[in-house]
Amino acid sequence: MLLFSKIWRTGVVTEVLEAGDPASVEVGHALEQRIKRLLGRALAIRHVDAGSCNGCEIEIAGLTSPIYDMERFGLHFVASPRHADLLMVTGPVTRNMEIPLRRTYEATPAPKFVVAVGDCAKTCGVFKNGYGVVGPVERVIPVDVSIAGCPPEPSDILRGILQALDRAQAR
């Protein structure tokens, strides 16, 4: 009962998604119109940690929190790449994660696209030229959207995905 009285008092805390810094999102390849139409309202995301320090993961976890609430835009995380439309990749791709990342990409049914989250995924960040690192995600699988930041804010990540789907006006 204590739980439900707390729920009643707290209410809905989701914040409106505001327009942010456009430089943080880089759309590499614009998606085809039919893909935007197909995936625009219901997008399943599979997250792949390709050697990240987990800083981006904490921000990504914030996406499912009540404040950022990505579900209201029709986005949700799934457990298997077979169910996914979007691969969200974090981390510089380490040598051990190169093949799994590629296999994850192959396991995902078309039409699909890839979002590289964080500076490590975009340019290897602080791990650039490290001995255990293969390269940025672009080196392994084709990336459609890159979101800069170390780590990027959840609202930036959301904006990036929605921008790729042409739902920039979504609130």
């Binding site: 707290t10 995936l39 609430d69 579900e71 209201r72 078309a110």
Partner: peptide, 24 residues
């Protein structure tokens, strides 16, 4: 849970999207 959440008709969008995907 204090979130706005997806609208109750979201599963229809999910199903429609899935019909447009390839099967692996």
């Amino acid at each position: 849970q204090g979130r706005r959440g997806a609208p109750p008709w979201q599963p229809y969008f999910d199903v429609r999207k899935l019909f447009g995907k390839e099967a692996v």
